[in-house]
Structure formats: C-alpha cells, structure tokens
Design a protein around this nucleic acid. Structure first.
Length: 725
RNA sequence: GGGCGAGUAGCUCAAUGGCAGAGCACACGGUUUACAUCCGUGGGGUUAUAGGUUCGAAUCCUAUCUCGCCCACCA
C-alpha cells in the first residue's frame, strides 16, 4: 500500500482484513508470545446475528462497539476472544420467510412441514454466508475458528440437556394454560412477543338475568355461565357465592352460577361480570381459583365453534354485529358506550389481535430461576451500562411470569418430548430412544412444536464455549462483556443470566453494555415502510468502513439512541483523509530516518510535546476502561487533528527543511541536523502512538499506515501492538 | 395507573459539584512546498420553568411543563 493522493478505503480494506485473518491473531490462542505472559482473558460473545437478511445499521453498531472493546483489550495484552455466531432466529425468520412465500403467492399451510423446514434452512444458510462476509466488511476481529450457529448439532445437544435438567428439577412442566395465540401466524407467543395497542371500541352493557354485565367482546359470551362480583360489594350482598340463577341468554335459557372473587373491580361498570375462561387470562385465573368449567368458543383460526349455534363457523369480526343485533332483538342490550378506550394485545410482528386460547404446552417456571439472578444483580456482580438498566431488569425479574416455551412453527429446534396416544402421558426424550409409553406401553407421538428461539439463545454464552471445548469454557467463562441492544434486555439478557446461572452456577458475564437504537438523520426510527432505512454497507462503500465506525461511536452514549447522519460520516471520511495526509507528510520527511539509531537528544519543547501526548494517552485509557468510547474517540480525534496536525507538524516544518534553508537560519549545522533527527523521532513517535490509540476505532487505515512506518521493533500487525502507556 | 430516559449553540451531542465544550452548519479571510476531504479568524448560551441545598449548580434536592420509551389483567 502506497501513501499517495487521498485515502481510498475501497482499495485497502479487503487486503487488510485478509492480512489480519491470515495472521491468526483473531484467535487468542495464536497471539504472539508476548501476549501469553499476561494470561488473563477477555471474552465477548457476539450476539448471534439473525441469518435472515442483510446486516442493518444496528448490527454495524454492534460490530463496531464490540470490535473496539476487543481490539483495545487485545492491545492491552489480554487473551481477547470475540466469539462470532449466527442465529436461526426461529419465529423472526419464519415470519420473514412467510412474507417471501406470500409474495410468491404461496402459503406455509399448504406445504408439508418437512419441505417448509428444508426451504427455510436453505434460505437461512444462504443468508448466513452473506452475513459472515458483511461482518468481515465491518472489520470485526472475531475468531472465526470458533464460530457457532444456533442449529449446530452440539449446540442443540446442550439445549436439550438443559431442557432435560430443568424437567428433572421440576422447573419445566406441561400445562393446559392460557396462552397468547396469533391467529395469523398460527402459534402461541410469550408476553414479550405481544404488544399493547390503545383502541377505541364499544362497551356493551347487557342484561344477564337480574344483573347488568359489561363486555367489549359480545361474541365470546355464548358459554358464559358464571357471573362474578366482589365479595364486599353491598349491591350484591343478597346473592350468595354458588347461588344458581335461571335466566334467558343469547341462544336460550341457561342456569348461571354466582361467584364471589376479589379480582373484581367494584368501580368498573356495574361491578358484575360474566367470565370466559378459555379466552381471557383474568377469567381463566378466576376459573382456576374456583374450579370452574372452561369452554372453548373460538377455534384457532378465529372462527366461532358449534356452541355459537347459528353463528358457528363465522369469523369473530363478522359475527359481532350480528350477535349484538340478536341480543338487542331479545331485549338484552341495556346500553352501549361508544367511546370505550382500552388496550388490546396484538402480535408484535403482524399487529393482528391476539386471541387468548387454552393450549397444552411446555412452560418454564421462572420464579426459582429469577431469584438467584436478582441476587447477583443486586450485589452488583453483574454491572449494567448505563446503570439505570439495573432497575429496569430487577423490576421485570421480580414480577416474572412463567415462560411458554412451545411454538407451533417448524423453523426452530424441535422440542424433544413425546406424548402417549393412549394415556397422554408426556415424556422428555432427548436422545430419541423411547419407543413406547413408560406407563401404559401405548404408542408415542413426537411433539411437533419447536422451542421459542430465545430458549436456545438464552444459553448462548456457555453453549458456544462448551461446544468449542471444555478448555475454552474454563478459560473464557464467565465472559466479560455482553454488549447488545437495550431493546432485548428481557428477551435475551435476563434469560441468559437466569439460564446461565442455572446451568453453570456462575454468572455468564460481568458487564452488560446496552446500546440504543440507530435512527435516521432526522431521529426517526428506520423502517422499510417509511423508506428511511440506511444500509451500512452503502455507507461503507461510499466513505469507508473506518468513517462509518467512528461516526457510529462519536457522540453515542450507551443506552441512548443515535441519529445516523450521512453528513456526519462524510466528516469522518475527511478525518480519515487527514490521518492519511499527515502520515504521508511524516513518511516523506523521515525517508532518511534510521530506526536503529539511539534515541536522540530532544529539545525542551519536544519533551513537553511528548509529555502532552502522555497525558492524552492516560485520559483516553481511563475513558476506554470506563466504557466511554464516545468520549475517548473525541479526545483522540481532537488531539490528532488540532494538536498533532495543526500545531506539531506545522511547528516542525522549519526543522525538517533542507540544509540550504537551515544555513540561512544561522546556528550550527550539526545542531540543526540533530534537531532534524530529533524532530523526525518525535513525529514518528507521536504518529505511531496516535495510530495505536485510533486503531480500535479505525482499524483499517491505521493498520495500513502502520505497515509503512520506519520504526523499531515493529510487530507483524498494529492489531497486536501494545496499547501505549 | 406505575416506571425509565431526554430537554445545553441553528442541528447532533459532550461536560455530573469548580472558568459551559466539540463536530456539523454559518460569517470573514487565506493557492504557507501532507491535506480545499485543507488552513486561520469569528459570531452564536439566563443549560425547559420555578424554588431550594452549597463558598460555588447544567450537574444534587423538590415541584411543574414538553418529548420519547417501557411495564400493567378496567371486563
């Protein structure tokens, strides 16, 4: 690489990445000898990237921050391991693939699950390759020899072992419980995969025998045969718990039962309501408490069942007005509140209404898992950056509910359980050995469900290390930093902490660094529908990876969202060019410099200049240790441009000038020659130290220039130079 | 209903008890032999509001306002 013209990132980046990768230094076991003296390790497990598309701006930020940490620690002499991985991303990928199918005019429901699985697998593996090269493009110094994929056989085996252990410990259980059902995607979802949406609906006041009850969903009321009120409600003190009441209802006369329960809000409506335990979580709980019947009204496609009589087979949306009409004609409608504001649950992917349903599934008991997690977080053994996330995660952990693990989609890790077709006994069978029911010898049927993808990624830190080797697990676990998006603190971070402690009896990581969202230049969330998505690879192509990287870091405090403005990146492209030109100047003026010569005698000014640099190094190092990369980057930027370039280089021009010019300046030639030599020494010293400080942020350009420097004891790569002290 | 974050120069954000800063933008002036993707100079602030603590507050406390986000089972 020659230093001429202005800096052209495209010409050098791929070559430099190859130099690094070929050196083997991404692998902490293959670092140069000097590194092994300090046996301490530094580990980051890369959040496994979803292999269902291209990397987006958020990934670029992940790669940048984690690479900065890794390169910094590596230069500090740690055995730095950054372990890369990719995620099959169960539901997320299936949703992406279903959209693709829709575009092609196909539907997942007419393809056999084997075929669908195969298609999505091909799709994912293709994307996986693609993303691996995009991660390289970002300059990520991760150890590809240890790369993991969430569907690797050995990873799946660990996931199964954890599941079995949880089962044996009584923490995972099969339950007929109410779940969030997405009618479009035909699967259950966890709480986190649903959203609450504010809506304005009608609230119906209906005559239910002697009571007036309220409902927003008249179409679910067919089977309602319990009317519930608060035990302390004076208005209903004449009605006894368990009392039977005959009354006329939608499809004829029924016998209703009075239930008293404290869950009822006396302020709401008339303080009396009927319950639909199959399709409402609160009603379900009341029914559980009083041991009441539960009846399904709506099927999994969102259509009314036979219980609805004449309305059976109709979609709930079309049935609702018809049902209200019938109620009205029977004189059962007291009044309708037209402006009823409430929030409804929707699927976080398709925004369609969630239909609560009772379904037999696997659940994970969370409280016993959360307890030790709460303890270590409270004690500060896991530190959050920024620190307020500590409160957020503790609040969530303290109010945790059981986690439904089963998903009715093909794209995922199959749940290793079998059910007896005769006695319905359920067995966990991780080695696929069982041929018949342990209890009644009946035939077994495999569970067709798959795990929630977060169940496997929740085991990622120890699973990745263990499957590489037990030695790796010993050397690199617990890991040091988990760096990821603040958005997925519950989805992922909390579960890694719980499952990590459960499986290994150790915390999985010491620091959790959470970055914010990357927004567009106007501070808007990027989305395909808005059409404001910035592709990081386009930016890289235009301005170079280094410019994008430092642009993503500067002014980006952890936890806070960041506006990605192309103008800003252009500014850092200029900075890259500045580095290039300053280096060019130093190299041109040090052609006759001999690195083997002893350190020359420096002037007082030169000594002071070097001392100032020492100060900057100290400050930057402190900031790096405090995870304040945005601030460290700014300090180096300022030093390089406005001190080194604007002052030092300018001031050293006379001393570097040719002898003819020096004669005119009087003074002894020998002295001036010495001064020239000393100036060269100072400039090279400052340049090489600056390049080291800049390297974690802008690895490509700094490495490229380093390769040209005429300095003593040069390493093979700047990447493995020691961090300045 | 509860919680969290933010509010500082035109814009994007730093600075958490000690002279309020940077980048971009703007204005003026520069072909100084690395760089016009550059250099020099400059304007621009009652740190959202009100009160309090302190020798000293953007920073700590109290209240209020605005914006954003998260959590929550009013049928």
């Amino acid at each position: 690489m020659k230093l001429e013209g202005s800096y052209d990132a495209k010409k050098v980046e791929d070559k430099i990445y190859k130099l690094w990768e070929d050196s083997g230094f991404f692998n902490p076991d293959k670092l140069p000898k000097s590194y092994k003296i300090k046996a301490k390790s530094f580990t980051i497990i890369m959040p496994p990237t979803n292999a269902n598309g291209n990397i987006h701006a958020g990934h670029a930020l992940v790669m940048t921050i984690e690479d900065i940490m890794t390169r910094y620690k590596r230069m500090k002499g740690f055995k730095a391991l950054w372990l890369p991985g990719l995620d099959h991303a169960g539901f997320e990928t299936q949703v992406v693939y279903e959209k693709k199918l829709e575009k092609e005019g196909r539907s997942r429901f007419v393809i056999t699950s084997e075929e669908l699985y195969k298609e999505i697998l091909d799709f994912t593996l293709e994307n996986k390759k693609n993303i691996e090269s995009q991660i390289r493009k970002m300059g990520a110094s991760c150890d590809w020899s240890r790369e993991k994929f969430t569907l690797d056989k050995d990873i799946v085996k660990i996931v199964y072992q954890t599941f079995e252990k949880l089962y044996k410990d009584g923490l995972v259980y099969r339950g007929k419980k109410i779940i969030n059902w997405c009618t479009k995607h035909q699967t259950s979802l966890s709480e986190l995969e649903t959203e609450n949406t504010e809506r304005q609906d009608k609230l119906y006041y209906l005559k239910y025998g002697p009571f007036i009850i309220t409902t927003a969903r008249p179409e679910t009321k067919f089977g309602d045969k319990y009317v519930v009120m608060h035990p302390k409600d004076k208005r209903y003190e004449n009605y006894k718990d368990g009392q039977k009441i005959k009354l006329e209802w939608i499809n004829g006369p029924i016998e209703a039962t009075v239930i008293k329960d404290e869950a009822i809000d006396m302020e709401f409506g008339t303080g009396a309501m009927t319950i639909t335990p199959w399709h409402d979580p609160i009603d379900f709980e009341i029914a559980q408490r009083h041991n009441l019947d539960k009846k399904q009204i709506i099927d999994f496609q969102g259509r009314l069942l036979l219980i609805a009589g004449e309305f059976a087979g109709k979609k709930i949306t079309e049935a609702r007005p018809l049902i209200v009409e019938k109620l009205r004609s029977k004189g059962l409608v007291e009044k309708i509140d037209e402006n009823y504001k409430h929030s409804v649950k929707t699927c976080y992917k398709c925004n369609s209404l969630i239909e609560p349903q009772i379904k037999d599934q696997w659940f994970l008991k969370m409280e016993p898992l959360a307890e030790p997690a709460i303890k270590v977080i409270k004690k500060g053994r896991i530190r959050f950056i920024p620190s307020h996330y500590k409160k957020i995660i503790l609040h969530w952990l303290k109010n945790i509910i059981d986690w439904p693990l089963s998903r009715q989609i093909v794209w995922g890790i199959p749940i290793p359980s079998k059910i007896c077709q005769i006695c319905h006994y359920v067995m966990v069978d991780i080695d696929d050995k069982l041929k018949s029911c342990e209890k009644c010898r009946g035939n077994l049927q495999k569970d067709s469900d798959t795990f929630d993808t977060w169940f496997s990624s929740g085991q990622w830190p120890f699973a990745t290390l263990r499957t590489n080797s037990e030695k790796d697990f010993k050397n690199f676990y617990p890991t040091d930093v988990m760096e990821t998006a603040g958005e997925i603190i519950f989805f992922w971070v909390a579960r890694m902490i719980m499952l990590g402690i459960y499986s290994t009896r150790k915390i999985p990581f010491k620091y959790v660094y959470l970055h914010g969202l990357v927004l567009d230049a106007k501070g808007q969330k990027m989305s395909k529908s808005r059409g404001n998505v910035i592709n990081p690879l386009d930016i890289t192509q235009k301005y170079g990876t280094d410019s994008l990287r430092i642009g993503l870091v500067m002014g980006n405090t952890p936890g806070q969202s960041l506006a990605l403005d192309e103008n800003k990146i252009r500014g850092y492209r200029n900075f890259a060019n500045k580095i290039w030109n300053a280096s060019k100047f130093v190299l041109i003026n040090t052609k006759d410099y001999k690195p083997t010569v002893k350190k020359p005698k420096l002037t007082a000014k030169q000594i002071k200049n070097l001392k100032d640099l020492q100060k900057v190094i100290k400050e930057v190092t402190k900031l790096m240790d405090d995870f304040k990369f945005y601030y460290a980057a700014e300090k180096i930027y300022h030093y390089f441009w406005h001190v080194f370039c604007d002052k030092i280089i300018e001031e050293s021009k006379p001393a570097l000038a040719g002898i003819a010019e020096l004669r005119r300046n009087s003074g002894g030639i020998a002295h001036e020659l010495n001064n020239r030599h000393a100036t060269q020494y100072m400039l090279l010293e400052m340049l090489s130290q600056s390049l080291k400080l800049l390297h974690p942020f802008m690895p490509f350009i700094t490495e490229g220039i380093y390769q040209q420097l005429p300095i003593k004891d040069k390493k093979k790569c700047l990447m493995v130079e020691s961090w300045p002290r």
